[in-house]
């Protein structure tokens, strides 16, 4: 009982911290993009200001909407993106709920925010939102393949090196960096898998060049068009947390090192150092896959993006799987 209470309390704490970090990262991202575009940009705390403002605003539900579905989906989106964080090793510590779920669960729960966004958009009854939702779903179907290939390849690798453990569990995956388990071909394969997971980031995060479901200049923010006030604030936070969650997942899969295991750090500081090091890693992943990319690309069309994910990125990840397979079997 006490253990359960402890778990609930620490989960709550983690969620609050993660939400805060996600919004700060969002602010830094906006500032950085602004600087890359020769603008001054908003202050880093702008996301907090925005959310405060949105919570004060009226929450409008269109006449054509299905109110309960329309209103519940933003909460589902935020809740599911936050819950993912409880299953992924976060801030250099093992995942809080690592005994209750594994990589497959995480991939599924990570799908929920996009799905909730699409359902909410369909429920709004607006034709702009409807088109945005269609695009969101098409995009989702095209990049999920890639993630499954990545999951399978890593699980295969770990099932051979730790036959007694659950290969999909994060406790197994983070026990050793995957890079140390493979030879030359496998190393190349891992690089390809890493690149393909990074390539999925813009679509997961709803950033350029794959912010197709929102596409401001085409369908006027698409899936978000009918949302306002509290609902929009929830979706905004969900979006920010989703980016953080996905970046943490990539870090957990491919960059599991802790600072304290690399260099000597006094015992009492090691947790703080690991935490900061984790944030740096997550930010690097976000920068490489989303911030920088969105500053130097135009928006793709949904068929172009789908083709890119199904053909280019999917083949890239398959090649990665093949290389790892060669490495394992030889």
């Amino acid at each position: 009982m006490i253990e359960l209470l402890y778990l609930a309390a620490s989960s709550f704490l983690l969620i609050c911290v993660a939400l805060f970090i996600a919004l700060v990262f969002n602010g830094i991202e906006r500032k950085l993009i602004a600087r890359m575009q020769a603008r001054i940009g908003p202050p880093i705390i702008q996301p907090f200001i925005d959310i405060k403002k949105l919570f004060m605003k009226e929450n409008i539900v269109p006449d054509s909407a299905i109110p309960w579905l329309f209103n519940s989906m933003p909460a589902v989106a935020l809740a599911s993106s936050l819950i993912v964080l409880l299953y992924i090793p976060f801030a250099g510590m093992p995942a809080l709920l690592q005994n209750y779920g594994d990589l497959i669960l995480v991939l599924y729960v990570l799908l929920l925010p996009s799905l909730a966004l699409a359902i909410g958009a369909f429920a709004s009854g607006s034709s702009f939102a409807g088109i945005g939702a269609q695009r969101e779903v098409v995009l989702m179907m095209s990049y999920e393949f890639v993630l499954s290939v990545v999951a399978i390849s890593l699980a295969w690798l770990f099932s051979l090196c730790c036959p007694q453990a659950n290969a999909f569990a994060f406790s197994t995956i983070t026990s050793k960096p995957a890079w140390l388990l493979v030879g030359g071909a496998g190393f190349l394969g891992l690089i390809l898998l890493f690149i393909s997971s990074l390539a999925v980031m813009p679509a997961k995060a709803g950033k350029l060049p794959a912010d197709i479901g929102e596409a401001k200049t085409e369908i006027a923010e698409g899936v978000l068009v009918e949302y306002s006030g509290r609902n929009l604030a929830l979706l905004y936070m969900a979006q920010a947390v989703r980016v953080l969650a996905f970046a943490s997942l990539i870090v957990a899969l491919f960059l599991p090192w802790n600072l304290s295991s690399l260099i000597a750090i006094p015992e009492q500081l090691s947790m703080l150092a690991d935490f900061l090091f984790f944030l740096v890693k997550v930010f690097m992943v976000m920068f490489a896959s989303s911030i920088f990319v969105s500053a130097v690309t135009a928006r793709l069309k949904v068929d172009q993006a789908a083709r890119f994910y199904i053909i280019v990125v999917f083949l890239l990840s398959l090649l990665g799987l093949l290389l790892i397979g060669i490495d394992i079997l030889m």
Binding site: A38, L208, P209, A298, R299
Partner: peptide, 10 residues
């Protein structure tokens, strides 16, 4: 219109 805001600003 293409979402390429960096070039817009440039």
């Amino acid at each position: 219109e293409l979402g390429f805001d960096s070039i817009l600003h440039y």
